[in-house]
Design a protein around this nucleic acid. Structure first.
Lengths: 161, 161
DNA sequence: ATAGACGTTGACGTTTGCGTTAACGTTGAT
DNA sequence: ATCAACGTTAACGCAAACGTCAACGTCTAT
């Protein structure tokens, strides 16, 4: 085998993980440093092993960053709010007071709601922008057609705007 | 009059311009420095006067930055490519060789095409994300309902996932 | 047991996109 | 003519988000 070492189950070392996530190794370590990724498991020698869940989380970070434009600090807070789910699943029937859980849930709900609102906003603006661009494109195409050995197709004068 | 100095036609000094664009004065000057905004006209004393076109351009920059996530360097290139339109309008019937114009037009077309493609990509991903978030939200709401002095509405057990 | 690929932790460097301050000029109202 | 509000350039500062060594350990195939 040339590049791939061996399958440690579906767990990936940082090299493969980085390649698949289209992020550098440095970036993954950086996310860990900053608390965006919980420290992944390790091999005996200390090599990081990323679980599929870790990989999903990385994807989530990418989305929040690239699609919605949040800073890593913001993303961290959001992920933490979301982690309420895990906490709840983990100690659903445990003793931990239910009041606090409800508070956390509401926090998570709030964050999610805001994300949805932001998406809706952005999608609306993007749709607008798309229309403008399409119009512009049509104009370019018109101009280009006009100049390919033509005979003044119909209403030809460069439409000023 | 309290805040507004006087109407210099629809031209704005940097203070007003910045306020309306929701950008700082520093930012506007910075864009100028970096060649994203062509140097605006000036008053006799040297004060910048932003035309409505300048304001539009600022909006365009904001969109490309916030909506599509381009760097200022990238945005600069795009705007330059787009400026082909102005150049063409300006010297439409002039002597400037038609070949070069066509090349520029194709460049502009290409850029626009790519922007549209990117928008489509992003919108698709955002729609996906929106769905996931909506589902998540529903789950939160279900959990929250369950805990407000209830009588086991229907299928109540915490759905594991 | 050795080599080559891969990984680890610092630590310092770089780029982007402005913020901030200083020292000074302009404008417009009074 | 004076004053406050507004503007100008130049310079330095800074946080975010990594990039890039260096010095060293690990893995695994041979």
């Amino acid at each position: 085998m040339a590049a791939e070492t061996q399958l440690h189950e579906p767990y990936l070392q940082i090299g493969e993980a980085a390649d698949r996530a289209r992020r550098t190794q440095r970036t993954l370590r950086y996310y860990e440093e900053k608390g965006l990724l919980r420290p992944p498991s390790r091999m005996d020698g200390g090599f990081r092993l990323y679980s599929p869940e870790d990989m999903e989380r990385i994807e989530r970070i990418k989305e929040l960053q690239e699609l919605l434009g949040f800073s890593l600090a913001e993303i961290k807070e959001m992920l933490e709010a979301e982690d309420v789910r895990l906490q709840i699943r983990a100690e659903w029937r445990s003793d931990a007071d239910a009041a606090e859980k409800a508070v956390n849930l509401r926090r998570a709900r709030e964050v999610t709601l805001q994300q949805i609102a932001l998406i809706d906003q952005k999608m609306a603006k993007m749709a607008e922008m798309r229309d403008e661009l399409a119009a512009r494109l049509a104009k370019y195409d018109g101009w280009l057609l006009q100049r390919t050995g033509d005979g003044e197709p119909a209403g030809a004068a460069p439409v000023t705007n």
